[in-house]
């Protein structure tokens, strides 16, 4: 085993991704199907929330991924700016649309869950609002990639945007917290909102927890598989462009 940076070589990454892709996909499918079927059909209904609680198996993993994908993009963008490995920034580019979808799933399942629980599709709860802002950051990042022709310029600009955006996303998170407390007390809503958070695992017994864990693992593996696939595609696109350019010159 050499250094991890060996995989920053596009060809080597491409080969490794092709090798691993089927296995990661199969594992993702197994854990997702098992987790979801287990969660939907073989866990008891919550005495208070009824069957609506089962949306937790989609909501919690997608919400976790929405944040972690952005974090992964932040790390890979930093690696690009510091070490200039193309694969790194292409992985960030490849991950962004996956992150958008995860954020959308989290928002949509949240709304579907919120309707019967809170009697409304949407409240300006700090957590929900923060996800909406994160969604906007994803859109801006993708739009900037699309708008710029030169791939290295686009890589540099989006990486800086990702880093600056991360700081502002964090700031917004605290600002939104502050803003909502300031606007209305709404403690009951806040407590209901907290069900999605860390205290789920304490409140919900192991019967719910294990399938949830399986679903989270499934989402992570699905994300890894998608990023492998999409990064490989991006590498192939760049390779095609480089070959065409060489042909034109030679």
């Amino acid at each position: 085993m050499g250094s991890i940076w060996e995989y920053a070589n596009p060809v080597k990454f491409s080969r490794t991704a092709t090798l691993l892709l089927p296995w990661v996909s199969i594992l993702a499918a197994i854990s997702l199907v098992t987790g979801l079927v287990w969660g939907f059909f073989f866990t008891p209904e919550d005495f208070r929330q009824g069957s609506t609680v089962k949306i937790i198996y989609l909501h919690v993993p997608s919400a976790l991924m929405a944040i972690n994908v952005w974090f992964m993009m932040l790390v890979t963008s930093l690696i690009w700016l510091i070490r200039r490995h193309h694969v790194s920034v292409l992985a960030a580019k490849a991950a962004a649309p996956v992150g958008v979808i995860m954020t959308l799933i989290a928002l949509a399942t949240g709304a579907i869950w919120g309707q019967p629980m809170w009697g409304t599709w949407w409240v300006w709860d700090p957590r929900l609002t923060a996800f909406l802002i994160l969604f906007l950051f994803y859109l801006g990042y993708i739009a900037l990639w699309e708008a710029i022709d030169n791939p290295d310029t686009a890589a540099d600009l989006t990486s800086v945007l990702c880093i600056v955006g991360s700081v502002f996303a964090l700031l917004s998170r605290y600002a939104v917290n502050f803003w909502n407390q300031g606007l209305h007390q709404g403690a009951s809503v806040m407590r209901a909102g907290a069900v999605t958070g860390a205290d789920t695992q304490e409140k919900v017994s192991n019967i719910f927890f294990y399938p949830l864990l399986l679903c989270i693992i499934g989402f992570v593996l699905l994300f890894v598989a998608l990023v492998f696939l999409r990064t490989r595609t991006e590498i192939h696109k760049r390779r095609t462009k480089a070959l065409l350019a060489r042909e034109r010159l030679g």
Partner: peptide, 18 residues
């Protein structure tokens, strides 16, 4: 001095992808 298409230094820009 037109570039021949065979860069002496692979590892820069798109050359890395070839």
């Amino acid at each position: 001095f037109r570039a021949s298409g065979k860069s002496p230094d692979p590892g820069g820009f798109d050359e890395e992808f070839l």
